[in-house]
Amino acid sequence: MLTKRLIPCLDVRNRRVTKGVKFQNNVELGDPIEMAVGYSDGGCDELVFYDITASAEGRPIDIEMVREVAKAIRIPFAVGGGIASLDDMYDVLHAGAEKVSVNSLAVVDPELIAEGARQFGSQCIVLGMDPVKTDAPGFGSGYEITIRGFRERTGLDALDWARRAQEMGVGEVVVNSVDADGTRQGFEQELTRMVAHAVTIPVVASGGAGTIQHLIAVFEEVHADAAIIASMIHTGEYTIRQIKDGLIAAGIPIRKKW
């Protein structure tokens, strides 16, 4: 049986892992390579790295870091932040990443994403989306897609966007709730459920994980294929082993041996 994936997220700025709340007030947590090895040895199923300042600073992603991660761990990892061209995608994948994660770029230049999926394969391209709740008319799902770290609204409905992403050829969608990010109050369940049922590609829930119960809920009730965790493990409150034991006890299919 296919297992549900637990994916620690490492936000990296100047080669240090940081974590904020709702994309702000970041504090430093440690060295990305050491943390990647620790989580991989600890039993996580995949990792994702976001170079959170590359885009704002207008520079390419830190490829040397990607190379070091690829040397250090033997599980799949995705890299995002600052991907602006097919060359950037090639560089990240060739350095040893399994996937590239694109977000704002997909809104600005969807054709580039489609071309990336054709050239490198759908399974290599992950679409990250940052939807925010809205009462404005014209949003069937009640969520609008934002870009550039929540700073810009796009006018795109979250469900329409997820379906379009699938048509573009992306292999997976990460639904990152801006409202829930870093709050540790649980995933945005309804949003995740809507996206999981709207597309036939895997859906990753992100933003808000604080307890094992939150993870059980997102896997069992709204059928996320994977979940991103950050604060709950970065603070040391939980180990991945503890989380997995809790999920296994609840009957969730989880990778048990590593």
């Binding site: 049986m1 296919l2 297992t3 549900k4 994936r5 199923d45 995949e46 759908s122 399974q123 292999g171 997976e172 036939t200 590609i201 895997p202 859906v203 294929d225 994977a226 990778r255």
Partner: peptide, 8 residues
Amino acid sequence: KIPHMGWN
């Protein structure tokens, strides 16, 4: 979902 993606 398709692809079959993850640990099995």
